[in-house]
Design a protein around this nucleic acid. Structure first.
Length: 396
DNA sequence: CGGCTTTGACCTGCGC
DNA sequence: GCGCAGGTCAAAGCCG
């Protein structure tokens, strides 16, 4: 009985040691086990003294059993320890993976990491190509730089390539701006849109399919300013005036002209950036939210000259909604944007201001406070349709 | 008289 | 090459 108790205590101690995640137990040095086992064996041997002969043999047998059991427990202990180590290793590995994943997620939001990712992609592509080539040509496995080496050496090159690509893109955009034309459709009784620039008429033609003549104007503000514009009434709706601008001003612009320039420039940028991904097909339309929502729409109409892309800003919907802009309101009511591409005529028929119109503009101005693009669009619309009431109105 | 508009002629590009 | 349409030129006319 005492031997069983001693063994039971031994197992309890061992179990306690595992639960407390203690190190290996030195069974010979552990005092509690040593004492328990010693006293148990002592009592066992004392009890077994009578009758001495038979009991001695039995005790020896029990001791042997205990030793065997002890060995088994030791083995189990070792197994459990190895399992614990394995689990600990897996836990550490998973923790590292988690940390890595968190770091990657954090870095992926930065432009620098995008650059690294591009470099890594290039590295992987190079790696794949090189391995493919070596496989196809039955070559030996080529010496490849490590990803880190590649990043350190190739990142600079990749950066240069990216910068060059950006420069080429910007140059292409500037070239497109010079060639591209911006057309503004506005509902107006006036033949000309007041935009702050001075224009000199140099020609007039009756174009095919439109009984209304087309007038040709040249910017008269700067010396040899290359900007030209065409003004023509819409054949379908003669209340709509189509004004087309071409070229860049080589002089400073008044605020009203800058407003229009801002809008046309923004529209042109949007169009040109969009054209890089969309084919120049039949009709390209921007949704209202793209540019001027909800006051007007912007639509790309295929130009008569395919080599010269034209974007049309359709401002006629504002007038459909009784959005008549009072002539007395200067575009300075709204902050002009410091962009310059196009400028526009000053001559326009004035529309007398009214309190209703003023209130309307105030409401709209308040509505667009948090929307810069809408602000620019409204500003342009105001400046283009208001015109300069002081100027006389030429007839087409 | 100077600046601007008008208007017919001319030039150029494109399609057939 | 020819015709057409769009774009430009320049002389004449108009206006302040």
């Amino acid at each position: 009985m005492e031997g069983k108790i001693a063994l039971k205590k031994l197992l309890e101690v061992q179990e306690k040691a595992y639960v407390n995640d203690t190190d290996a137990i030195n069974w010979t040095e552990e005092p509690s086990i040593k004492n328990t086992l010693g006293s148990s064996l002592l009592s066992l041997s004392l009890n077994n003294l009578e009758p001495p002969q038979n009991h001695e043999q039995q005790n020896l047998n029990q001791l042997g059993l205990l030793q065997i059991e002890l060995e088994e427990v030791k083995k189990e202990n070792q197994n459990l320890r190895s399992m614990l180590n394995e689990i600990s290793e897996h836990y550490a590995a998973l923790q590292n993976q988690l940390l890595l994943a968190m770091q990657q997620k954090k870095l992926s939001s930065s432009p620098r990491n995008n650059e690294d990712m591009q470099a890594i992609l290039i590295y992987l592509l190079n790696l794949r190509t090189t391995l493919k080539d070596s496989q196809q040509n039955n070559m030996e496995k080529p010496a490849l730089p490590s990803c880190r080496q590649f990043l350190n050496t190739g990142k600079i090159n990749n950066r240069v390539i990216l910068q060059e690509a950006k420069i080429v893109e910007e140059q292409a955009f500037e070239a497109s701006c010079k060639k591209a034309r911006v057309s503004v459709r506005a509902r107006s009784e006036s033949s000309l849109m007041g935009d702050g620039c001075q224009w000199r008429k140099y020609g007039q033609k009756i174009s095919k399919g439109n009984p209304c003549p087309r007038a040709y104007y040249r910017c008269n503000m700067g010396t040899a300013c290359p900007v030209r514009k065409q003004v023509q009434r819409c054949a379908e709706d003669e209340s709509v005036v189509i004004t087309t601008y071409e070229g860049n001003h080589n002089h400073s612009l008044p605020p009203a002209a800058r407003s229009m320039a801002c809008t046309t420039s923004a529209a042109l940028k949007m169009f040109l950036s969009g054209s890089t991904t969309s084919s120049h097909g039949s009709t390209y339309s921007y949704s209202n939210s793209d540019l001027f929502s909800p006051l007007c729409t912007s639509t790309y109409y295929p130009s008569a000259a395919p080599s010269c892309p034209t974007i049309t800003l359709d401002l006629t919907q504002t007038s459909k909604n009784n959005m008549k802009f009072p002539s007395a309101i200067s575009s300075n009511h709204l902050q002009p944007f410091p962009l310059s591409l196009h400028g526009q005529p000053q001559q326009s028929e004035g529309i007398l201001p009214s309190e209703k119109n003023l209130a309307l503009v105030d409401v709209v101005s308040a509505a667009i406070t948090n929307d810069p693009s809408l602000k620019a669009a409204l500003e342009a619309a105001v400046s283009s349709i208001i015109g300069d009431s002081q100027k006389s109105l030429p007839t087409l």
